[in-house]
Design a protein around this nucleic acid. Structure first.
Length: 204
DNA sequence: TGTATGATTAAT
DNA sequence: TTAATCATACAA
C-alpha cells in the first residue's frame, strides 16, 4: 500500500491550511464488511472567527464535536434530510473543521441511493456523499481511524492537480470568505464557481 | 413551550 | 425556483 493513514498532526493545523491539502486524499469507509473509498475533490473550511461556523456563537450539545481534538469526526443533520461530515482541525477546545463536500468514487455500492445519477456524480455534494457512504450521526464525535470504519489516507506521491479556490456554497453568513477548494479537472465537484486558481506542489 | 431556520437535494 | 422535512437554537 502506497497510501497511508493521515496522522493526527496533519489535522492539528488551521482549517484553511488543512482543507486544500485534503484534496487528493482518500476518504475510506468500511460498511457491511467492505471497504469503499472516494477521492476528496472538494472541501470547505470553518472556524471560530467565522460567523458561518456552527461553533461561532457557543458550544452546544449539537456542535460539541467541533470543539474536540483534531481528527475528530463532526456529523450533523441539515434541512432535516441530509447529513454532512466534517473533520475537526487545529486544537482541542477551538472550533474549526473541514467540510468534505464531494468525492470521486471508483467503486460504488450495489444499492445506490440515487440510481439515476451518473456514477461520477454519486458523491458530488456533502449530503450525497454521506448518503452513499452511510455516514450519519452515529459517527459524530468518533476519531478518524480504521477501527471506527472511517479514515483518510494521504495523497499518492504522484499527486499534482490544479486547485481552484472560491467562496463557499449555500451560506447566509461569511459569504465572502474564500474558504472553498476543489480539484479543477474533476467531474465530481458539486458546483463549479471559479475565483482563483493555484497549483499545489506534490505531497504536503 | 413555540417558532424560525439551515454548510442540501431532486424535481419542476 | 421550490418543496421536502426535522433537530436545534433561541426567544419568550
Amino acid at each position: 500500500m502506497l497510501d497511508k493513514l493521515l496522522p493526527t498532526t496533519f489535522f492539528a493545523r488551521p482549517a484553511e491550511i488543512v482543507a486544500p491539502e485534503l484534496l487528493g486524499c482518500r476518504l475510506m469507509r468500511r460498511m457491511d464488511g467492505e471497504i469503499y473509498q472516494g477521492l476528496i475533490v472538494e472541501t470547505e473550511a470553518y472556524d471560530a472567527t467565522d460567523p458561518a461556523c456552527h461553533g461561532y456563537r457557543r458550544k452546544t450539545e449539537r456542535n460539541a464535536a467541533i470543539f474536540g481534538a483534531p481528527a475528530t469526526v463532526y456529523v450533523y443533520l441539515i434541512y432535516g434530510r441530509y447529513h454532512c461530515v466534517n473533520i475537526v482541525t487545529d486544537r482541542q477546545d477551538f472550533c474549526s473543521a473541514v467540510l468534505i463536500r464531494a468525492l470521486e468514487c471508483d467503486r460504488l455500492p450495489a444499492d445506490l441511493p440515487n440510481p439515476k445519477d451518473k456514477p461520477h456524480r454519486a458523491a458530488a455534494g456533502p449530503g450525497k456523499l454521506c448518503q452513499l457512504l452511510k455516514i450519519d450521526r452515529q459517527l459524530n464525535g468518533v476519531s478518524l481511524n480504521p477501527a471506527n470504519n472511517l479514515w483518510i489516507e494521504g495523497r499518492s506521491p504522484e499527486f499534482n492537480e490544479a486547485i481552484v479556490q472560491t467562496t463557499r456554497i449555500g451560506l447566509t453568513q461569511g459569504v465572502d470568505l474564500p474558504w472553498r477548494w476543489y480539484l479543477r479537472d474533476r467531474p465530481s465537484v458539486s458546483k463549479v464557481k471559479d475565483k482563483v486558481i493555484q497549483k499545489l506542489s506534490k505531497g504536503y
